[in-house]
Structures are given as structure tokens and as C-alpha cells.
Amino acid sequence: MPLLMCRRAVFGYEGEAAVSALDFEVNSGDYLCVVGENGSGKSTLIKGLLKLLAPLAGSVVYGDGLQPGDIGYLPQQTPAQKDFPAGVYEVVLSGRLGSRGLRPFYSKKDKEMAIENMERLGLTSLANKCYRELSGGQQQRVLLARALCSTRRLLLLDEPVAGLDPIVTGELYSLIKQINDDMGVTVIMVSHDIHSAIKYAKTILHLRSRQAFFGSAQEYAASDIGSKFIGGDSNV
């Protein structure tokens, strides 16, 4: 049973479809990159997969015992966060909240997990720093650590490298790859960076307000739509 399945799913807002004809599955340990132009429905799909948005038609099925709380999510940054006084440790620890239910305070195990994830992503020395004073790459690593605190199974990343310089982008990609390989965490990532997507991801989902391609990264590079998108991108 796949971890996550979309069956002829349509997602949109207020009855209007933003992305349709979604028919794909994600297995445990997969690394799926969602690509497509602006407004092709990538972020809408992510909201749908998180069940923050009910499908207008079709269905999203979680399999293999996956619960909604088992998904680690790395959202796009909001403007409010840019001047938010929050410590790195506070942010990472808040990833444990979903598993707390109604219990008000964090347990010792939650705190250990937060510390462990900060170590894994090289954030230990920043633990007491203020989130807003970090560089963009460091901020994304903090959010990644928080996402890892909420799951060991599936990470949903919404444009994690947006606005980062090439070196930091490369570092973040290899970090995500490492998480996928070493920890066996399934990764679904939305990305504008088509070259890195092909380099790192196992499977590609191309959206054009509908599902235009779904298959392995090699197949995608060889396909008509894939080579066009890659070619078009390198001209920019």
C-alpha cells in the first residue's frame, strides 16, 4: 500500500479548480519533486495533500498507517515571521506540538527530540539565537528541524530554497537528500529549481493546472515536456 495516493483528485478554491486530474502515488522512501510554472497549482496541491483543503472531486488516500499528524510540513515563509521574536529552540520544539494533543506542556522526550534534530541540522550553536536574525539558509534549516520534530515518515516542503543563494541552496538540497537516504523519510518537495529537482529527486510530478507528467526523473528528462521545461529554464 502506498503512503499517499491521489485518485482523479481536483483541488481548488470556492468551487473553482486550481489543479485537476491528479492521479499519482507516493511510496515509502520516495523523493518526489513537484514542478511547474507559477500558478500551476503546486501550493494548492500541497494544501490538498495536507488535507487543509478538501478535494473538489476524487480523493486523497493516506495508506500504510499514515495519520494527518505524521506529516512534517515546511511552509513558505510569511511576512509576519520576518520580525517575529522567537528563539531557534522554541521554533524547533513547536514541531512536537501536533503529537501533544490537549496536553499543555512538552515532555522530556519532546525536548530531547528537538535537541537531537537541531544537532542533526547543525543548529546547536544557534539554539538561543533569534530566528529573525538568522540568514535565509539558517532559517530554512530551523524550519526543517521543526518539520522533522513532527514526523519520521513524510516531509512536505513548499519551495524550501526560494530566495537562497546557490551555495546555500546546494547545501540544503544535500541535507534533504541525506534525510531521505539515511533516515528513510519520504520527501515531497515543490521546487522552481528544475535542474536540482532532476538531480536529486527520484520521481517528478509536473503540473500545468492539471497533471502533465508523473514518472521517474530519468523518464522526465527524456520526455518531451521535460526537455522543453528544462531547456526553457536554462535560457532564463
Partner: peptide, 19 residues
């Protein structure tokens, strides 16, 4: 307190993790 922090800092994330 912890929930108010999470909801204030990042509502999207909090909602995604089931808060």
C-alpha cells in the same frame, strides 16, 4: 502557552500538524 506560540508563529504549520 505552547499552542498560542505555535498558532502565532506559523498558523499553516500548526494546522498541518493537526493543531
Amino acid at each position: 502557552y505552547n499552542k498560542i506560540f505555535a498558532v502565532t508563529f506559523d498558523e499553516q504549520f500548526a494546522r498541518a500538524t493537526g493543531v
